[in-house]
């Protein structure tokens, strides 16, 4: 059987479900906006002196934070969309896919792609709301950011899918959300530069895949960053390939036992 049919239709399903769940959309946009505005604007005035701006690549804090917040939005939304495989497990849709004659890899890649597209959409809305509040955004940077957002979204929805396929309970979901999501965000350089972190934290930050997405977004939207663009892209592409491969393998061997 073809690969394109299951891929397209699982993407379609994610998009349809996204359109239906408006509250999910509002929730996932409000949260990063609250961070950006209260945390960002608050610190922005506190950091309003030249030495501080040096730390933030010559920008005021709010501006520095914005690319990080956009990536945080995409990360959170795509990860959670992957984790909703748990719900499919609970409510039987998973069995419906497992019993079908379709190859499972494209089905799960399609689901990832759907999760990635909806996450990207949310990230772009957040960007659109924040852009007028800051001055130095490079508008053409939005085009590479779309690609970066897609890769970040694909990777983390794949991670979410992998975990959810392996997990058996709802508690697992809550544990994961606190033990994985928050640290990943704080250790990504979204809120503060990696260069000023303590050494041990730097190591964790370099090991964190989200770091490379945040750095790229900052490069393209502001023209500043901690790492090289080429390194960032190589890591991000490798990450996408690896996470999708792992998710496909786990899902191919998924059973209801």
């Amino acid at each position: 059987m073809s690969w394109s049919d299951p891929l397209i239709v699982m993407t379609y399903r994610e998009l349809k479900r996204f359109i239906r769940a408006k509250s999910r959309l509002i929730g996932s946009i409000i949260n990063p906006l609250i961070w950006a505005i209260f945390f960002g604007l608050g610190w922005s005035s506190a950091f309003n002196f030249p030495q501080a701006k040096m730390i933030f690549g010559g920008f005021d804090y709010m501006t520095y934070l914005t690319p990080g917040i956009v990536m945080m939005t995409i990360f959170t939304a795509s990860f959670i969309s992957g984790v909703t495989v748990l719900w499919d497990k609970q409510f039987g849709f998973l069995k419906e896919v497992l019993v079908a004659p379709t190859p499972r890899e494209p089905a799960i890649i399609g689901r990832s792609l759907g999760g990635s597209l909806t996450a990207l959409f949310q990230g772009l809305i957040v960007l659109a709301v924040l852009a007028p509040m800051i001055s130095n955004i490079r508008l053409f940077g939005v085009i590479p950011v779309i690609l970066i957002g897609l890769l970040v979204g694909l990777s983390f929805s794949a991670v979410g899918i992998t975990l959810a396929t392996k997990m058996t309970s709802m508690e697992g979901f809550h544990i994961i959300s606190s033990f994985i999501m928050m640290p990943t965000i704080f250790l990504s350089g979204a809120f503060y530069p990696i260069s000023t972190m303590p050494e041990w934290m730097k190591i964790l930050a370099y090991a964190n895949p989200l770091t490379y997405g945040v750095d790229l977004a900052r490069h393209y939207l502001l023209g500043t960053g901690d790492l090289g663009v080429v390194t960032d892209f190589l890591v991000l592409v490798a990450l996408t390939v690896v996470t999708l491969t792992v998710a496909s393998t786990v899902f191919r061997n998924a059973s209801i036992e």
Binding site: V9, Y12, R17, P101, T102
Partner: peptide, 30 residues
């Protein structure tokens, strides 16, 4: 390819419409 199944526990996606459920099923079956 040759079997159809109605599971004991419900397995339709209740956020989608009747049409969308059947459409997704059909596409998964080629």
């Amino acid at each position: 390819k040759v079997i159809g199944i109605v599971f004991q526990d419900p397995s339709v996606d209740d956020q989608l419409t009747a049409y969308e459920n059947l459409y997704i099923h059909g596409r998964i079956y080629g």
